[in-house]
Design a protein around this nucleic acid. Structure first.
Length: 153
DNA sequence: GCCAACGTTGGC
DNA sequence: GCCAACGTTGGC
């Protein structure tokens, strides 16, 4: 099983939104690297660090799980959507996504500033100033983040 | 709101 | 295929 980090702006879709709905289609990814990870590398039941970007503070707020095989992003076909892409067709969706389901909200957020000061996370993609909205996470890194989330400040 | 990083587009 | 121009992300 692999591990991932997926970013969402909480004003757009937060961990609380996912907790309420239980499950969500990860629509709107329009970056090829992120798309390829979802389309080619993810498997059902992989675990995901749910990250709030453009937040104050930004950081990891909980865990989700990959809940579907990849499929074409329907928002790319919808002219009314902000994610519409006229190059997408039902036969050639161009953009892919997976469903994610809620697993847990951490007792406290682990802010990016803390990820950056934890030596065991020096190699983590998110601390290396990557703008990728879907990133691979090493199993050890995943465990460290969970440990930080359960450690009282 | 600023701006650095960096991905994408399109002319050539 | 190169690369300049442009657009977006996202921390601060």
């Amino acid at each position: 099983m692999r591990h991932w980090l997926m970013k969402s702006e909480p004003s757009d879709y937060s961990i609380d939104d996912l907790r309420e709905e239980g499950r969500a289609a990860w629509t709107g990814v329009r970056n090829y690297q992120a798309r390829n990870l979802m389309r080619d590398e993810m498997s059902v039941d992989d675990l995901v660090l749910f990250y709030h970007s453009n937040a104050s503070p930004p950081g990891v707020v909980g865990i989700a799980r990959i809940a579907s095989e990849p499929y074409g992003d329907p928002t790319a076909l919808d002219p009314a959507s902000r994610y519409y892409d006229e190059r997408a067709t039902p036969g050639e969706p161009r953009w892919y996504l997976v469903d994610v389901e809620f697993v847990e909200k951490f007792p406290r957020e682990v802010p990016l500033s803390e990820l950056k000061t934890e030596p065991r996370l020096d190699g983590m993609v998110v601390t290396r100033r990557s703008r990728l909205s879907v990133q691979p996470v090493e199993p050890e890194e995943f465990e460290v983040v969970c440990e930080l989330a359960r450690r009282a400040e």
